[in-house]
Design a protein around this nucleic acid. Sequence first.
DNA 1: AACAGTTGCACGAATTTGCTTGTTTAAATT
DNA 2: AATTTAAACAAGCAAATTCGTGCAACTGTT
Lengths: 255, 255
Amino acid sequence: MIITENRIMLKKERQAQIIKQVNLHNKVLSSDLSLELNVSEDTIRRDLNELAQENVIVKVHGGALSKSYNLTATQADTYAYDEKNIIAQKTISLFQDGMTVLCSGGTTIRAIASQLPENLHITFFTVSPLIALELTEHPNVEVILLGGKLSNASKISIGGEVVSKINEIKADLCILGINGFNEDGISDSDYEVVQVKKAMIKASKQLITPVISEKLNTTLRLQVISLDEVDYLITELAPDHKILESYQSKVGFIM
Amino acid sequence: MIITENRIMLKKERQAQIIKQVNLHNKVLSSDLSLELNVSEDTIRRDLNELAQENVIVKVHGGALSKSYNLTATQADTYAYDEKNIIAQKTISLFQDGMTVLCSGGTTIRAIASQLPENLHITFFTVSPLIALELTEHPNVEVILLGGKLSNASKISIGGEVVSKINEIKADLCILGINGFNEDGISDSDYEVVQVKKAMIKASKQLITPVISEKLNTTLRLQVISLDEVDYLITELAPDHKILESYQSKVGFIM
DNA sequence: AACAGTTGCACGAATTTGCTTGTTTAAATT
DNA sequence: AATTTAAACAAGCAAATTCGTGCAACTGTT
């Protein structure tokens, strides 16, 4: 009977070592681990991928980083980053100098705000402090923040004061962040938010709804407005995509 | 055991460094980063472009700037973090359940907002969207955001509408972010901001001025209010520190 | 012997980086 | 205000590295 060399390591054991290294140095290189643990880089890479899958570490090109590593909004915040960018570009194509635009909150609207071209001269009204801040980065844009009680959940101004303030506005476009969208129209889950959105729609000549396609055909508890009030439905998909079929006769699309 | 010298830096790691530098100094030059991180300027430029694309920094010719508001400000990239924390704790000791507090913007005020204890029930009025967002993280706090035209430079609501809105408020405390402070009182450099600050002071029973000591004995172009209107001057220093000598007879301090 | 699990290797694909080229920008000078 | 000049830039390329996958070899277990 030959006693196996004690140098060989079980997979679990090796992965425990890797985790230890990551936590110790906040980063590891695949090549270093390969040398240190006497296995091929392929094995290390497989380990790192498994550990990343288990959400224990963050895999990056060349190695891995500890989860506590200050990896900004790069990944978490920018869910569906590419899709939202496409939507943003389509939406921006509707903007023209001199317009007055009323907009709500949400990550899709935020993508629009951050990608505005430098030269556009627009007045924005918004109930979202976050969007307002984003918009102030653009020197040629005037930002009017609509104040009021701030909703802890949705981070937008709500309440009677906001609604009556919105009623005083006459905007060209309403860019509305969407939570529920189907053939019946737009729906949402928060009563106060619905009141604000209704006022916003009423105050604007045209209603634009940027929606990521995965939110299409979803219904929430409260109805905001029916589909025929929507002027443009903007998604990341081409206008002739089959998911959009049921909407094609009711709303406008942007190439 | 092999100790590997980590000459090699992972891309994400390098980008995290860059973000840290940008947020700490508010601006960086590509050439400096290139030297500091031992990569070519091309690589730095590519990193900066990626980070700008992800909306983490603002790319400019020659380097990059921090976004003037920074939603993900952390310990590492807040200037004078420790000092501001001391100031925050002292200021918070003045808060009591049921109070109405009016506050402006700035990183020191932000430190206060982020460190509020969980159990405190307070109504906050603020002209700063950033402070407002920070405050909504505290479930027992009611946040009223004062709307108006948003100043691109100072990121607070300005204009007649804000001022008249403030005049309707009766607050217990005014927590005022300070830019210039000396024996003559508080000064600032932006006319619109001064108008708002004056209104805030007038609407409050007590005026609290959290100031980092390095801003003491500085004067800006416009006078906001004289020193004898200030109830508490809060710095990171002990009340008997010699820098505070000239203020000791005029204002209150917090241990 | 059959089997699932693990590992190393091969190889084409993808990523990253520094360099070169020609262009654009910002600032300094006239 | 016009011109000049050096720096910063984008785009493309090549070398090096890393990646993912299929496959075969090896392990220990049933």
